[in-house]
Design a protein around this nucleic acid. Sequence first.
DNA 1: AAAATATATCTCGAATTCGAGATAATTATA
DNA 2: TATAATTATCTCGAATTCGAGATATATTTT
Lengths: 154, 154
Amino acid sequence: MVYQDKKQVDEKDISLKLFVVLNRAMQSIKKQIEEDIKRYGLNQTEFAVLELLYHKGDQPIQKIGSKVLIASSSITYVVDKLEKKKLIRRKPCPNDRRITYAVLTEDGKELMRTIFPEHKEAIHDILGGVDIDEKKMMIDQLKKLGTYANKDRS
Amino acid sequence: MVYQDKKQVDEKDISLKLFVVLNRAMQSIKKQIEEDIKRYGLNQTEFAVLELLYHKGDQPIQKIGSKVLIASSSITYVVDKLEKKKLIRRKPCPNDRRITYAVLTEDGKELMRTIFPEHKEAIHDILGGVDIDEKKMMIDQLKKLGTYANKDRS
DNA sequence: AAAATATATCTCGAATTCGAGATAATTATA
DNA sequence: TATAATTATCTCGAATTCGAGATATATTTT
């Protein structure tokens, strides 16, 4: 192929542009949200773990990894930190001795009851750049993007 | 306020959902792109720096930081790595002795000439989950989101 | 039942990023 | 001009994340 169809080239430029803009937007948003969470003495990963336990109840440590999307070695690290802060504790599974559950302590629950609504409010504020219909549209499109990206394209 | 307007609550849920979906999609996409770049023995930050120099020419090290969105200490680290790989070199600025330019070496240029088109193709493939019109729409919306997120909301 | 395979968690070292602060050079102010 | 403030880069130590591999337990296969 000596030359590429003009339209093809344009489309690739659009894709590249989308990636760049996605990156930028994400970084801005994450930075703001990180800022909010820092007020509670937590980082995003720690918060995500607490949020998971708060909404879904006790979880095997390994499940946490797949939901929060981090490597198993990283979970050990985060769970250690949260345990030191007395926000969660480890509880062995009686049926399967390989498994350890992460469980919110009373302190952890209390903290989440307080900060989760505030956090939700903060996210809503930070994402105020588009209206609700646009958000719904973006959710659909982002789901498609994410699902497709995970597919094997080789 | 004893209760919150139902609509308000829903809207906050949508915002939260958008954030979650955005995170997920981004992580999937980044992972795939990282994978592609790894084939060239680079990571995303290194690639971003090379790309910047390739498209915008020599840059003061500090400018690189603001474009690629990393801290000054991190740039020093990345520039060191790329210099060791002989893909860029440091060049002092004659007018302002505080400034050091990062400059693509011939090897660096050659590499980018080869891999940039491939990389662009890969991104296009990875982002195949939505069509071009949806991409254009997302670009606009993401720009709005990003700009707004950067605003001071305190 | 023994052997092989799979699963859950953890340890370790490496890579990457950050923030605080040091240093040197430049620009603005008194 | 001397002083103060700003700017560009770098150093250092800490935080976070990862992947490879270790260990213990459970499940599947022979």
